[in-house]
């Protein structure tokens, strides 16, 4: 099959280019895209990409495969290859450091903004802050996010305003803490989100939902934040 990989090493290349490689998959097996990258790297050791857990847990190998963002380690070739061809690019919208490795600073800054930790001013109980099973269930579909950035880098609103729009990933996390029964900073969290960009740049395009490798739904969380804002303001 033909693999076309985005290559850019700012130390030697004037501009990014696509490197075409013909490769035979050993035994014709339906391997994962990450395994394919390993085969490519054996041929050309200068190829750079991130990976760690190789089982969809760490979130480091998010990339754009035939036009769709996803985790290379849990994406089988059969799910993305078309006409025996695969185009691999870095996640779109963020600066490229080298080849498939992007600079995620902007993404993490948005994450930092939403204060991704429990805030509770009441005295800490002796053991732990308890939640009822129902309260705990509110966090399902939120806490599973692995911050892979597949969603935010698929979102046009994030491409145009990555410094002002929190993006689907950060907003899913924002709602995770708004929905937490143990958190007491709800009012302050909401007033931090009330400007025209942070939440309201979401136009419900739903690219985020269609790419999330963990099957999460940022658009739904964003809708819930909006409802909380409306409730607080009316």
């Amino acid at each position: 099959m033909l693999v076309s990989v985005y290559r850019y090493n700012p130390e030697v290349d004037d501009a990014p280019y696509m490197q075409d490689v013909h490769i035979d998959i050993p035994g014709g097996k339906d391997i994962m895209v990450l395994d394919l990258l390993q085969l490519l790297k054996e041929k050309d050791t200068t190829l750079a990409y991130r990976r760690s857990c190789r089982e969809g847990v760490c979130g480091s190998d998010g990339m754009n495969m035939n036009g769709k963002n996803g985790l290379a380690c849990i994406t089988p070739l059969s799910a993305v290859v078309e006409n025996d061809k695969l185009v691999l690019r870095p996640l779109p919208g963020l600066p490229v450091i080298r080849d498939l490795v992007i600079d995620m600073t902007q993404f993490y800054k948005q994450y930092e903004k939403i204060k991704p930790y429990l805030i509770n001013d009441t005295p800490a109980p002796a053991i732990e802050r308890l939640q009822s099973p129902e309260e705990r269930a509110e966090l399902d579909g939120l806490y599973e996010c692995i911050l892979c950035a597949c969603c935010s880098t698929a979102c046009p609103s994030f491409w145009w305003n990555p410094d002002k729009f929190i993006g689907p990933s950060g907003l899913l996390q924002a709602y995770r803490f708004l929905a937490d029964s143990r958190d007491t900073a709800t009012t302050a969290r909401l007033s931090d989100l009330d400007d025209p960009f942070s939440v309201f740049r979401c136009h419900g395009i739903m690219n985020c939902v269609s790419v999330c490798p963990k099957g999460l739904n940022p658009t739904k969380a964003i809708g819930k934040i909006r409802n909380m804002l409306i409730q607080q303001a009316t």
Binding site: L193, D194, D195, P196, S198, V199, F200, R226
Partner: peptide, 10 residues
């Protein structure tokens, strides 16, 4: 922006 608040504009 119109109302200076995202919620207001929305």
């Amino acid at each position: 922006s119109f109302g200076r608040s995202g919620l207001y504009d929305w």
